[in-house]
Nucleic acid binder design. Structure first.
Lengths: 160, 160
DNA sequence: TGCACTGAGTTCAAAATACGAACTCAGAAT
DNA sequence: ATTCTGAGTTCGTATTTTGAACTCAGTGCA
């Protein structure tokens, strides 16, 4: 988005509000080493404590803490379920709020494949109905795809 | 993406590789309380140590450490610059790798506005050329926009 | 009835990180 | 020579994370 080459002099300070932004709030909710990974488990249908723990290698005490926080913040729900012929247990599943992180999660995964991993990971995201591979893109209000280089931040006009 | 209502029995374990995924790599690079926020500053053109520190309220020792890590990992570059009539200084600017996090960053910001903040933040992302507001969407390989609910994970077929 | 097993935690001590206030240091301006 | 400023370092304290051991309720089996 911002293009550092576009002006030869440096703005002393960007003319935008900053610390109290949406992104800062978001990092409060999921900006730690484990939360996003736990949510990824939920995306893929893993809902049991011990499965998550094994998959991620997260210490029990941290997992317990993170699950409680994600539930408290409304990203996960703790719900009873019963597997065939087994007793009732509790598992965690995504709420609407948690499910809506999918775009972020997919965008970050694609970034990592391109710039960190340097290869495609073992999982792709496809359209359930057509089977076609999906990617994340910027679109304008008429549904046209716009390359990310053309995106720039703009202070929203308040009604005052 | 995953729909917890779609099957009445719970899969014991999701049939997908997990911990060694792209997302885990990505959280190594930017999954702490400050890195994303620092990159946001860079997106908005803030490149000076003390400006970042003031904006975010981050302790100096932590900022120094994060900047060094982000440079080491190739998300930021430390470059000399000179303001009119001032001595040469050093500032930080995004690399291509860092700039490519824009989609993730925008997606997360929109999520936070919708689900955490409950209101639009002070900044919108617009198309530099048309001025139109932009949002993040999933598109298929023919450029058609697909609603996020239709996105499902699928194990990629390896060549073996 | 007693006993081992399992899932889902809790507890706790040690290690790693984060925090914030004070200090440093080089280049410019006076 | 002194002061100012940007960009850090240092360091003692506070908070978090980690991993190993322990708990505890429900089940299945003998």
């Amino acid at each position: 988005m911002s293009n550092p080459e576009s002006s030869s002099t440096v703005r002393r300070r960007a003319p935008v509000p900053r610390a109290d932004c949406a992104l800062a709030q978001a990092t409060e909710e999921i900006g730690d080493r484990w939360s996003l990974l736990i949510l990824r488990e939920a995306f893929f249908g893993v809902m049991r404590y011990d499965d998550i723990r094994e998959d991620l290698g997260i210490p029990r005490s941290v997992l317990t803490d993170r699950l409680a926080k994600l539930v408290a913040r409304g990203l996960l729900e703790k719900r009873p379920y019963r597997e065939a012929g087994d007793r009732q247990r509790f598992g965690y599943s995504l709420t609407e709020k948690g499910r809506n992180l999918a775009l972020t999660f997919i965008a970050l995964t694609h970034w990592s494949e391109a710039h960190v991993l340097g290869a495609l990971g073992p999982i792709e995201i496809v359209d359930q109905e057509t089977g076609r591979g999906l990617r994340v893109a910027l679109v304008d209000d008429e549904g046209r795809i716009v390359p990310a280089e053309r995106a720039v931040p703009k202070v929203r006009v308040q009604d005052g």
